[in-house]
Design a protein around this nucleic acid. Sequence first.
DNA 1: TCATTTTATGACGCAACGTCACAGTCTAGG
DNA 2: CCTAGACTGTGACGTTGCGTCATAAAATGA
Lengths: 245, 245
Amino acid sequence: MGTRERRAREFQQREEQMLDLATDLLLEQGRDAITMERLAEKSEYAKGTLYKHFSCREDLLCALTTRRMAEISMLLQRARQYPGGSRARLLATLIAYEYYAHSHPEEFRLLIALVSGPLSDRASPEHWHKLEQAQEQLFQVLRELFGEAREAGDLPELPMDPDPLSFGLWSLVFGSYVLGNADPALCRRAGIASLESQLHGMMHVVLDGAGWHPLSHECDYAAVIEDIHAFVRTQLPETAQPEAP
Amino acid sequence: MGTRERRAREFQQREEQMLDLATDLLLEQGRDAITMERLAEKSEYAKGTLYKHFSCREDLLCALTTRRMAEISMLLQRARQYPGGSRARLLATLIAYEYYAHSHPEEFRLLIALVSGPLSDRASPEHWHKLEQAQEQLFQVLRELFGEAREAGDLPELPMDPDPLSFGLWSLVFGSYVLGNADPALCRRAGIASLESQLHGMMHVVLDGAGWHPLSHECDYAAVIEDIHAFVRTQLPETAQPEAP
DNA sequence: TCATTTTATGACGCAACGTCACAGTCTAGG
DNA sequence: CCTAGACTGTGACGTTGCGTCATAAAATGA
């Protein structure tokens, strides 16, 4: 008899619902509104039931973060399809990331606060593991782009291993958002008009430094970026709207 | 008569004491122990008195963060004195930063969690302003290094404005620590033995990309870094120990 | 139908936040 | 030296949110 399976499936579905509702809560009332109490009320389940799914508040937040990361992963996967050279495709993923940050400001702000925060200590092993997987999947996109670039011969003289370099790129992007978000005034003082243009500039520097061809003086990347924007805008928007499947 | 001034001074001193005690709390019992209740108890003042100094918990944390940043600023200022070329001096500040992160793990972890968190919304304007100043002062170190490099002719063909580039460098370092801290497993999977070597590698890439001479193939930076380590270890340790004046 | 297992509940205890009316202390002018 | 008034310190209080657990309800299947 499939009773157990059915139960497990329903349980999973309910968990997804809970996460949907938590996101609603975030969008309607801000991040402070994501409490076990309010989610219980909103979901019309009792608190005890909530705790069947999430071992503690951080566990819920961990699951929420996993969701956001998965959404971003999907976005990057599609952005990677941009028809262009390997370096242009890398830029496309960056721009898709920016696109997400821009079109989901609340979710993104929460994401960066949570990733930098103390989730790992308190989340349940299960949800934490899923978060790590999601993170790995995101990282995988960069890894693959490096692989493709090497195969295509666009990375003839890599000065360091590709994985640490990927990690560095990601750190740069993520760190910029963290700092830019933490203190917009600092950005202003640093003469940064927009984090996007800032990141594009840094990308040129880093990718040139890594010898990723075509180098910025060999190609009109301003035009490429313009084109990628059009691509992202036209090809990706539906993924950017979080929806249940 | 100077009654007012004396009072104000005593008030300031007490605030410093409170921050000392909050740091003790952090080191003794972890970051969760930094609560208004416990700090009140530890300081032997009532809660109400605490709230004369800090408008809310975040305000206290903001002030704590400012302290840490000021400590780091001092450290970087001194590291900048490293006798070497402009690029070596920049590396020296980076290594001093790493040194701080390494020798004050708890404080540093708290710092990154707080900077990425929601302090700006809730801290009082006064303490927030001080934090911004501390951040600016830190940033200033980078700014000046760029200025010196340009004067020395080590940066002949800067591909972007120095301030955004400084911001980018800082983002890279900070972001690496945030991510490395959030998920050490990811680092392991990315083949990163230590964040330090990782950052040194990235620095070579970025600074080469920015055309900061001598380029990494023009100079034995491994030896330079070794020498800087010795310099930092011998010249800077006392600043690294937080002490009341 | 009913015994058993599984699931849902929400009152409860606890910790921490931030407030405020009051009590205590200090100052300055007489 | 005294006292009115200003300033400072206090901690009980109300509130919110976390996480638990004994108990009630529902589902299962024999």
